Amino acid sequence: MRRGVHPALFYSMFVLLLGGNALQGTALLMAPDIARLLGGQNEQIVTAYEDRLAQMRVEIDRLQSRNYAQAGDINLQLQELSAQQEALLEQHQLVRALVTKADELGLAALGGVDEQILYAPTTANGNPDVAATAATVVQMMDETQQAMSDIASAATERTASIVGELSKIGIEVDLPRTALSGVGGPLLAAEGSSDQTSPSLEDANAVMEALLQYKAARDSLALAPVHMPIVGNFRQSSGYGNRKDPFTGGRAFHSGLDFAAPTGTTVLSAGEGVVTFAGLRSGYGKVVEVEHGNGLVTRYAHLSAFLSQKGQKVQTGTPIAKVGSTGRSTGPHLHFEMHRADKSVDPKPFLDTGKRILSMLN
């Protein structure tokens, strides 16, 4: 038979537990914060906690401000790079226009900007890559500069070649003056950090001036009588200067170049000009004369037919007559003369100059 807990022992244990709880409650009441809170000092406690929270908010705001500043710097960098890209895109279009103009003038297509680099790269998460974007901007600037430099160099070099070659035969090229550059004004302190005129725009203006100079040189080449007056099946049968006369056998002066060719072969104007004579001359038979300016006149003789008339404006290569054997001639050929200030000069240096220039241009 089991025995239960004695009532006296049970009540004794209950009294001990109750007393322990009372002592613990008294200790809690003696705790400083709780005692002040229960004693009516709760406002001080709340104020202290609020001060601590305010300090924490200040620290959080400072950290957030730093993050915002860093994010702002990145956004500012991206905005600046985006503005530079837009400007470079416009310059790219300008370079394209200059290249097209150069092609029209016979210059090979030179340089250009790789269109694959015209757009800002992104990171793996799709955000703009600031460093890579900056690198593409630098690459675009370099390629734009190189393209314009190539065009200007080619145009300037060829202009100098044409002018130099024509000057050797006494033909002066009238090149356009460069753009007016007069500037002035009071000396004032600079404002801002950037100039109104970008270096690329100045480079583009320089390229355009170089192309205009080259165009003027090419136009002078078209005016100059330096082009072959005959094409097809022909050969030079006699040169300029003293030779054995084909009729008398004695020494005589020959005032032009002879090109033997079949009767009816087309004769072309050696340069741009105006037909000043189309008719008969003693010893020459049927003759066409073209005035080219600069005191230069070309004469085409021993013709079989006229394809032009006095007063007609002709271009380089315009058909003006046909080969024949009229006048003092032993057979069908073109007698080609060059006159400067009413005095005959050797046509060969003129034709050789034309061949060299055309070879260079082609």
Results as ranks from 00 to 15, higher is better:
R2T: 11
V5T: 07
H6S: 06
Q24K: 03
Q24D: 11
Q24G: 03
L29N: 09
A31E: 15
L37F: 15
L38C: 12
G39D: 10
Q44P: 02
A48K: 08
L63S: 10
Q64H: 06
G72D: 15
Q77N: 12
E80M: 14
E86N: 08
L88E: 06
L88K: 05
Q93A: 10
R96Y: 09
D103M: 12
L107P: 00
A108P: 02
A131Q: 09
T133M: 08
V137F: 05
M141S: 15
Q145D: 12
A152Q: 14
T156N: 12
I162Q: 07
L166C: 07
E172R: 13
V173I: 09
G184Y: 07
L187D: 15
L188I: 14
A189I: 02
D195S: 13
D195V: 01
S200M: 12
S200F: 11
A206P: 00
V207S: 05
E209K: 05
Y214H: 13
R218N: 02
R218M: 05
S220I: 02
V226W: 06
V231R: 00
G239S: 14
K244F: 04
P246T: 03
F247R: 01
T248R: 02
R251G: 03
A252D: 14
F253N: 08
F253Q: 03
T263S: 08
L268K: 00
A270K: 01
A270F: 04
T276G: 03
F277R: 06
G279M: 03
R281G: 01
G283K: 07
K286F: 10
E289K: 11
V290A: 08
G295M: 08
L296A: 08
S304W: 05
S304E: 12
F306I: 02
S308Q: 01
V314C: 03
T318E: 05
P319K: 11
A321R: 00
A321K: 01
G324S: 10
G331Q: 04
H333A: 02
L334S: 03
F336S: 06
H339L: 14
A341F: 13
D352W: 07
T353I: 11
K355W: 06
R356S: 12
M360V: 14
M360G: 12
